[in-house]
Simulated assay, not measured.
Amino acid sequence: MPRSPRARALGAELRRLRRVAGISQRELAARVGIAHSQISRIETGDRTPSEPDVSGMLGALGITGPEREQLLAMTRTSDDAAWWESDPSYGLPRQLSTLIDYERRATRITDVATLFIPGLLQTAAYARAVMEVCHVPERDISTRVATRLGRQGLLNNPSIHYEALIDEILIRRRVGSFETMSEQLSHLLQLTERPNVTLRIIPLAAGAHIGLDAGHLLLEFETIGPIVHLEARNTAGFLREEHSVEDFRHVAKVLRSIALEPAESKERINRCREEVDAKSWEL
């Protein structure tokens, strides 16, 4: 069974806090009074932590105030597919809730990415690094990372086909640490094994291309017309007019024609990961 998005998000955040504190898993386990194996499983998301688990870990790490309360609130929330929408204290933009609903109902999603690795493909560490560089308030980051990971649950639905057209610069631009990038690229490689997920890299050799002016998300459905989602910094919107949607559909078609085939894309991602691991990363 796939790990729950909430468990993954909490685990990633608790691991980050432990590393910031400079404490090993064994030392934390001893302080909390639980088995080392439990700490490991919580941090990887293989075990959904209880509120006492999280409370004990946060106490041992010296986490207090709003950050502690936010993580405990996340722990208490159910694992329903829409858990992030069930509590108004999360304060998510209304358009994000609408996007989440559209993503669940879609049968095909085409993601054109020219700024960052698509949100539906990001690891927790990469998502956090993106939010930090974009100056998202620290108090909001944990919730937003968890929300982003929660959205990724739709990739477990075999009836939804997801295709990402990713500019090669995005797998070569360091976001966060080398470790963060290595984990992110490894995650992309794992996703290429899913039958309903297609990743295609737009190579740097293609030069300037039609997708550079705006990334977008094209959502297609069984019973309603396609919709395009656009996002730029602190604003976002949806396009439904046929001529506008067709324009973005054309962009995706052109990019598909210049992108590497899926197998070649996988090789390119793997080569980049090897360069990251060897710290010999070059454009």
Rank of each mutant, 00 (worst) to 15 (best):
Ala7Asn: 08
Ile23Pro: 02
Gln25Phe: 02
Ala35Phe: 01
Arg41Ile: 07
Ile42Thr: 11
Thr44Glu: 03
Gly45Arg: 05
Thr48Pro: 05
Glu51Gly: 11
Asp53Tyr: 04
Val54His: 13
Ile63Trp: 06
Thr64Gly: 10
Gly65Val: 10
Gly65Ala: 14
Pro66Thr: 04
Leu71Met: 14
Leu71Tyr: 12
Ala73Gly: 11
Ser78Thr: 15
Asp79Gln: 12
Asp80Tyr: 06
Asp80Ser: 12
Ala81Val: 13
Trp83Glu: 04
Trp84Cys: 06
Asp87Met: 10
Asp87Val: 14
Pro88Ser: 14
Ser89Trp: 00
Tyr90Asn: 14
Leu92His: 12
Leu92Met: 13
Arg94Ile: 15
Ser97Asn: 06
Leu99Ala: 05
Asp101Lys: 13
Ala106Lys: 11
Arg108Gly: 07
Ala113Cys: 03
Thr114His: 06
Thr114Cys: 08
Leu115Asn: 05
Ile117Lys: 03
Gln122His: 02
Tyr126Lys: 00
Ala127Lys: 03
Ala129Leu: 01
Met131Glu: 09
Cys134Gly: 14
Pro137Cys: 13
Arg139Tyr: 10
Asp140Ile: 01
Leu149Gly: 04
Arg151Thr: 01
Leu155Ala: 12
Ser159Glu: 11
His161Pro: 00
Tyr162His: 14
Tyr162Gly: 04
Ala164Tyr: 05
Leu165Glu: 10
Leu165Val: 07
Glu168Cys: 05
Ile169Phe: 07
Leu170His: 00
Ile171Asp: 07
Arg173Pro: 04
Val175Cys: 02
Thr180Pro: 07
Met181Val: 11
Ser182Asp: 07
Glu183Gly: 00
Ser186Ile: 00
His187Val: 00
His187Ile: 00
Leu188Phe: 01
Gln190Met: 05
Leu191Phe: 08
Leu191Met: 15
Asn196Leu: 06
Val197Cys: 03
Arg200Leu: 10
Ala208Met: 06
His216Ser: 13
His216Gln: 04
His216Glu: 01
Leu217Asp: 08
Thr223His: 08
Thr223Gln: 11
Ile224Asn: 06
Ile227Tyr: 12
Arg233Gln: 14
Ala236Trp: 09
Phe238Asp: 04
Arg240Trp: 10
Arg240His: 14
Glu241Lys: 07
Glu241Cys: 02
Glu241Ala: 10
Glu242Pro: 03
His243Met: 06
Ser244Asp: 15
Ser244Cys: 09
Glu246Leu: 13
Asp247Gly: 15
Asp247Lys: 15
Phe248Asn: 06
His250Lys: 09
His250Pro: 00
Lys253Met: 00
Val254Cys: 01
Val254Ala: 07
Arg256Pro: 00
Pro262Tyr: 02
Pro262Thr: 09
Ala263Ser: 06
Arg273Met: 05
Glu274Val: 07
Lys279Glu: 15
Leu283Trp: 10
